[in-house]
């Protein structure tokens, strides 16, 4: 006689079945990623060439449709401007929340609004800027910098939230140690708090950049679109997402192929950013 009770076959079957279902559904979750990457590589890789990367879209109905140079450069410039706006402001707001806002009413309100902003659809940010800056003809009509502002608004809550998470992890004992030496608070923040949270802050910034770089809707309402390369943010600019969006609907194979190529370029840019951010995040967790 065995000393152990018998576990009914039904229980063992249920357990196996549940495990099987969860494993299968996890596989299902990964299938779309694999499919999308497969299709982008399959259809997009052929489109990519030096010509593709180094010429502007021509807009010609016949003949050479051109490449995506202006879109790549436009995306880079806009995202750069947006980052320059959103990261300092976002970290500033996070600093306020962590250093001064804990337990205060204003801190609570600001944190709540940041949460609200996180949930606002990107198209609504586009409409914000459209009604606030485009319709009013503030410094011209559609313009690159307005797209950048829309993206910055979109990035702001992501930056603030992730910055708050890492800033709050800086031990209070570290702050107190510096303060006890008689250092003023701003210097404590600049010399102690920010440096010890640096990797985390960069990670959050990169993730926000990755998110903004792929956004389409806010740009359509704010930046317009134009074919030639333009570095002047006070004029209309092209961008990869908008270029893709405009090309998808075209019935011409050559434009559709350009859309796939542009998608591959965009996804590659974003994936690289995301992976860098994740590697940094992992490293900062380890130390």
């Amino acid at each position: 006689m065995t000393a152990l009770p018998v576990i009914s076959a039904r229980r063992r079957r249920t357990d196996l079945f549940a495990r099987g279902v969860f494993a299968a559904l996890t596989l299902v979750a990964i299938v779309p990623l694999v499919l999308i990457i497969y299709y982008i590589l399959d259809k997009g890789l052929g489109a990519i060439s030096w010509h593709f990367l180094s010429t502007d879209p021509t807009g010609n109905f016949l003949g050479d449709p051109g490449g995506v140079k202006s879109a790549i450069l436009g995306t880079l410039e806009i995202v750069l401007i947006a980052t320059a706006l959103a990261v300092p402001i976002g970290i500033g707001v996070a600093l306020y929340l962590v250093e001064f806002g804990r337990g205060t009413v204003l801190g609570g309100v600001v944190r709540y609004f940041v949460d609200v902003l996180t949930g606002v659809p990107s198209i609504v940010f586009g409409l914000f800027i459209y009604t606030g800056l485009v319709v009013t003809h503030t410094l011209g009509s559609f313009a690159g910098w307005k797209g950048a502002v829309a993206l910055a608004l979109l990035m702001l809550p992501v930056v603030t939230r992730s910055a708050e998470v890492v800033l709050i992890l800086v031990p209070d004992s570290l702050r107190e140690a510096a303060l006890a030496l008689g250092a003023p608070r701003w210097r404590v923040v600049a010399r102690v708090v920010l440096p010890s949270a640096l990797t985390g802050l960069i990670t959050g910034g990169l993730l926000a950049v990755a998110r903004a770089a792929g956004e389409t809707a806010p740009l359509i309402f704010t930046m317009g679109s134009t074919l030639p390369t333009n570095f002047d943010p006070f004029k209309q600019m092209n961008s990869l997402p908008v270029q893709i969006f405009n090309d998808v609907g075209q019935a011409q194979d050559r434009l559709v192929t350009r859309a796939w190529g542009a998608a591959l370029t965009l996804v590659a840019m974003i994936l690289i950013l995301t992976l860098i951010a994740r590697t940094l995040a992992r490293r900062s967790r380890l130390t």
Binding site: T2, A3, L4, P5, V6, I7, R11, R12
Partner: peptide, 20 residues
Amino acid sequence: CLDQVDVYDPSVNVVAVRRA
């Protein structure tokens, strides 16, 4: 061993072990 049964024996169900 629980009496004669080695609970680490591959044929033993870990759930039964914890039940006992």
